[in-house]
Design a protein around this nucleic acid. Structure first.
Lengths: 145, 145
DNA sequence: AAAAATCCATTTGTATACCAACAATTCGGT
DNA sequence: ACCGAATTGTTGGTATACAAATGGATTTTT
C-alpha cells in the first residue's frame, strides 16, 4: 500500500483554530462571568482599583502602564471612576505635567468588598480545567504577552 | 526550628495572575501583530471574510453567531465591509426578515491575498512557545470558551 | 385562524481600545 | 544656560463589544 489512507493534514485556514479568535472567545466568556459577579464595575475599572491598592497613588499615565491601557484609554477609565467618587485626582507639584490618581475611601471600601468576588471570577473562568491545566494556561499566556 | 522560613504562599490578589488580565494582554499583543501584518483589516473584519469563504452566503445574524459577534457588532462590521466593496448584501425572499451577506469578488480576492499573512500572524503570536506548548495553549483556551 | 413566542435587523447608549496630533512641561546633553 | 528630545495629559476619530428597546416577519402554540 503506497497510498496514504489517513486523512490528509488539514491545510485549510480555520478561523476557530487561530489564537486570535480563541483568545477573543475566551475573553468573551470571562467578561460574561465578570459582569455577572461584579455588575457594578468593568474589568478595566476593577483593574485600576486593584493596582492602586497594590501601589498607592501614581500618575495617570503610570497607572495606565501598569494596567496595560494606553493614555487615551486610562483617561476615560479614571474620569468615570472619579465621577463615581471611587478615585481622586490631584496635580503633582513637583512635576506639573502629572495628575496623581489615588483611591477615595469609597473606592477602597468598594474594592475590598469586591475582591473576594474577583477571585471567584478567576476560579469560575478556569473551572473547566484542573489545577495543573490552570497553571499551564496562565504560564503559557504569560509567555505570549 | 518551628518557624517557617519558606516564603508564605502569596495570598494577596495580584492582578497579573488573573486570567482576565493575562487574556487581555495576550489579546493586545496579538492585535499588535495583526495590525502590523494586515493593516488593511481588523481581526473581526478578517474573521467575517474568512467565515464567508468557509460557509458561503449566510444571513447577517448567522454570520455574527459563527464569528462570535452579537447582532449590533456584526452589523457595524458588515456595514463597513460593504462600504468598502468587500461584501454584498441582499434581501432573503423566502424569509423577509433576513439580510443575506456574501463576499464580493474584491472581497474574495483580498481574502486570498491576506490568508498567508493571517497564518503568519498566528505563527508569530505563538512564536515564544514550542510546538507542544502551542497545541496545549490552543486546547486549553478552547476548553474555557 | 388567532395569539403567543421567537427571530431578525436596527438603533441608542455606554465602555473599552488604539492611533495621531497637540500643548505644556520637564529632561538631557552640550 | 540653552535647545532638542522625551514625557504627560488631552482631544478627535475609528472600531469593536454588549445591553436594552423596537418594529417587522415568521413560527409555534393553542
Amino acid at each position: 500500500m503506497t497510498k496514504d489512507d489517513t486523512p490528509a493534514p488539514d491545510d485549510s485556514y480555520q478561523l476557530d483554530r487561530q489564537v486570535g479568535f480563541v483568545l477573543r472567545r475566551a475573553s468573551q466568556r470571562h467578561l460574561s462571568i465578570f459582569s455577572e459577579l461584579i455588575p457594578e464595575l468593568t474589568p478595566t475599572q476593577f483593574a485600576a482599583l486593584a493596582k492602586l491598592v497594590e501601589t498607592g497613588p501614581v500618575s495617570q499615565n503610570a497607572l495606565g502602564r501598569i494596567t496595560a491601557m494606553d493614555a487615551a484609554t486610562i483617561k476615560g477609565v479614571v474620569d468615570r471612576l472619579v465621577k463615581r467618587g471611587l478615585l481622586t485626582t490631584s496635580r503633582d507639584e513637583r512635576d506639573r505635567r502629572r495628575t496623581i490618581v489615588d483611591l477615595s475611601d469609597r473606592g477602597r471600601i468598594l474594592y475590598h468588598q469586591l475582591e473576594p468576588r474577583a477571585r471567584l471570577i478567576t476560579r469560575q473562568t478556569l473551572a473547566p480545567l484542573d489545577r495543573t491545566e490552570q497553571e499551564q494556561l496562565l504560564a503559557l499566556l504569560a509567555h505570549i504577552c
